[in-house]
Amino acid sequence: MSVVIPYQVEPHPVTGVTSGKLGIWLFLASEVMLFGALFSSYVLLRVGAAVENWPTGVEAGLNVPIGTANTLVLITSSITMVMAWASLKMDNLAAFRRYFGTTIALGLVFLVVKAFEYSDKFGHHIFPATGWPEAGDPSVFYGLYFTLTGLHALHVILGILVNLWLLFFGVALWKTDKERLTGRIEIAGLYWHFVDLVWIFLFPTLYLL
């Protein structure tokens, strides 16, 4: 006997949304708390440190033009993601594949740039536990930098893996249940936009301030 998960396509009569959509938003709310805890730690540590002991992103050797370019890459991947979903809504599978494939490619570009940034830091013997050499007392700037960007990069990797599965395997659902696939892409999109949203706060916090 097969069990069918209810309200995958039809909205639940009480909540007005599908099970999947409610689920992803609850998950994203927990993600807000996860990243929120780290941001809160950042505030605590920065406020606790003397001003002269806290490097700006530039002083810490972060490359603002590269960070800006990577921000634009992620923002672009958000619009291609929403266009992928809109393409399915308009019954255009070929356009969906193009936009969705571009979203995945842009996610990979983001990761490659991030990998270059990391390897540059490692090349300069800067690691998560490296203190700020100019400071009178050790700063945790790099610890925060690697933790926050590392956790974010893990989210990008997870998003890419899920999207790759949807592009090559999940898409088969289009033949039998178009609405269900469209719903799944919307949910994958909500996760992807959230990853973009986190970066929108990470970029100025770490690179610019």
């Binding site: 909205p11 909540t15 007005g16 949304v17 959509k21 409610l22 938003w25 609850l26 709310a29 807000v32 708390m33 929120g36 805890a37 941001f39 809160s40 730690s41 505030v43 605590l44 406020v47 606790g48």
Partner: peptide, 26 residues
């Protein structure tokens, strides 16, 4: 739908508390 907005409002309230915590240590 409202249910999603309520989930996020609750989340925002907890997030607010999370950001108030460091101020107490200041």
């Amino acid at each position: 739908e409202k249910v999603i907005l309520w989930v996020l409002l609750l989340c925002a309230a907890f997030l607010f508390v999370l950001f108030i915590l460091p101020l107490g240590t200041q």
